[in-house]
């Protein structure tokens, strides 16, 4: 495990999230860098998904949600009034728990982002972006002959890789994955995990997972969340073999959660 020397890609400082009166996140600080896949683990309702959604301001879509604290992307506060949320989400992409392809063709699903952001000046370049994204998402060989078929007709695992291709297509800097494999069978899960390995280094990746083996397999750094706080954050190997905190140890050894 190499120590990173670069400045963190994203950095959260004392982040608090409220849903109405209820506080869901109680002051979380974390640095996310380009070289390591970061896994968020913790029992259900611990706030890991909520915290993930603050990183690209998806919590803005919930009317009662309120975020305090600072989150920076390349040193720029993403909650400042100067930040264009639409641009932010293009730079910080997201893959959801349940595959959610649009009811459009496979091609149009991937071309959706480039089209709305005007990334491709002509059809040939758009074709290239679609192909590259599908190749990187490991889906190209399976779908290259049927790009005009509906994205919803694919299998669950293929749909999820299509969603990853869709996120990659706008060339984001960070990809957030919210339990991307929880709706998939083990074979499809293995493919997604392999894909995460391949994407590492090109994008900063944060993955929320319930599955501790998965966290151990795909991530280099792990953060353990419990009751709205981040209990422990460190190298994955340390967290799983030699956690500093009692609560982390209890969770990892399956004593609760």
């Amino acid at each position: 495990m190499t120590e990173t020397v670069s400045a963190p890609k994203m950095s959260a400082h004392d982040v608090k999230v409220f849903y109405g009166d209820k506080q869901a996140i109680k002051g979380v600080s974390i640095d996310i860098d380009m070289d390591n896949v970061v896994a968020f683990i913790g029992p259900s309702g611990c706030g890991k998904s909520t915290f993930l959604r603050t990183l690209n301001r998806m919590n803005d879509t919930i009317p009662t949600a309120r975020v305090e604290g600072d989150i920076t992307l390349d040193g720029e506060n993403i909650y400042s009034s100067k930040m264009d949320v639409v641009q932010l989400r293009a730079r910080v992409g997201m893959v959801f728990q349940k595959p959610n392809p649009f009811p459009k063709s496979i091609y149009d699903n991937v071309a959706y982002g480039p089209r709305i952001h005007g990334l491709a000046p002509n059809k040939a370049e758009l074709d290239q972006i679609v192909e590259n994204s599908l190749v990187r998402a490991g889906l190209w060989n399976e779908v290259k002959d049927r790009l005009s078929e509906s994205g919803t007709a694919l299998s669950g695992g293929q749909q999820q890789r299509l969603c990853i291709a869709r996120a990659i297509a706008v060339d984001p800097e960070v990809i957030l994955m919210d339990e991307p494999c929880s709706a998939l069978d083990p074979i499809a899960t293995a493919k997604i995990e392999e894909l995460i390995h391949e994407l590492r280094g090109r994008y900063a990746i944060v993955i929320v997972t319930h599955n501790m083996q998965q966290a151990a397999r795909v991530s280099q750094k792990t953060a353990f969340f419990h009751l709205g706080t981040m209990v422990e954050y460190g190298d994955t190997s340390d967290i799983f073999t030699n956690p500093r905190e009692e609560r982390t140890r209890d969770y990892i050894t399956g004593r609760y959660g």
């Binding site: 992409g93 959610n100 982002g113």
Partner: peptide, 10 residues
């Protein structure tokens, strides 16, 4: 589906 689109920066 709506979240997916918003998360793409639409």
């Amino acid at each position: 589906m709506r979240d997916g689109s918003l998360a793409m920066g639409a």
